[in-house]
Computed example of a mutant assay.
Amino acid sequence: MNQTQTLTATPEGLARAAQILSGQGLVAFPTETVYGLGGDARSDLAVARIFDAKGRPRFNPLIVHVPDLTAARTYAVFDARAEAVAAAFWPGPLTLVLPLRQDSGLSPLVTADLESVAIRIPAHPVAQALLRSFGGPLAAPSANPSGRVSPTRAVHVLEGLAGRIDAVLDGGACAVGVESTILGLIGEPALLRPGGIAVERLEAMLGPLPTGGDAKKPNAPGQLASHYAPGAPVRLNAETALPGEVRLGFGAGASDLNLSPSGDLIEAAANLFHLLREADHLAQPGQRIAIAPIPEQGLGRAINDRLRRAAAPRP
Rank of each mutant, 00 (worst) to 15 (best):
F29Q: 01
S142N: 10
Q128I: 04
P57V: 04
N144Y: 06
S107A: 10
N304W: 06
G184N: 08
R247G: 00
D52G: 09
S107W: 10
G212N: 03
L224V: 11
S262K: 15
A9H: 02
S133D: 13
L275D: 00
N304Q: 13
I289M: 05
A71S: 14
A154I: 01
A162D: 14
V27Q: 01
N271T: 08
A86M: 10
P141E: 00
R314A: 13
D256Q: 14
S150M: 07
T8G: 05
N258L: 12
A283K: 01
V157R: 01
P243Q: 04
G147M: 06
P189S: 09
A312N: 09
R201I: 00
T10H: 08
R193F: 11
D166W: 04
V176D: 03
L62D: 02
D52C: 06
A241S: 14
A283D: 07
G222N: 06
I121W: 03
E115I: 00
G213Y: 11
L299Y: 02
G251I: 01
Q287R: 11
Q3E: 15
N60S: 12
S43N: 07
D44S: 13
S260Y: 13
G298K: 13
G263M: 13
E296G: 03
A220C: 12
R81I: 01
A204Y: 02
E115F: 04
D166Q: 11
K54W: 09
T4N: 07
L161A: 02
E179T: 10
T31D: 04
A270I: 02
E200V: 09
G207Y: 12
V47W: 11
L299H: 13
V27I: 09
D256C: 13
Q297C: 09
P57W: 09
F273T: 04
I119V: 15
P108T: 12
T70P: 00
A139I: 10
D256E: 14
L202E: 04
A84F: 07
E12A: 15
L307C: 04
V34G: 07
I20N: 03
W90A: 05
S262Y: 03
P61N: 02
L299G: 05
A46T: 09
A48Y: 02
A232S: 14
E83Y: 12
F134D: 00
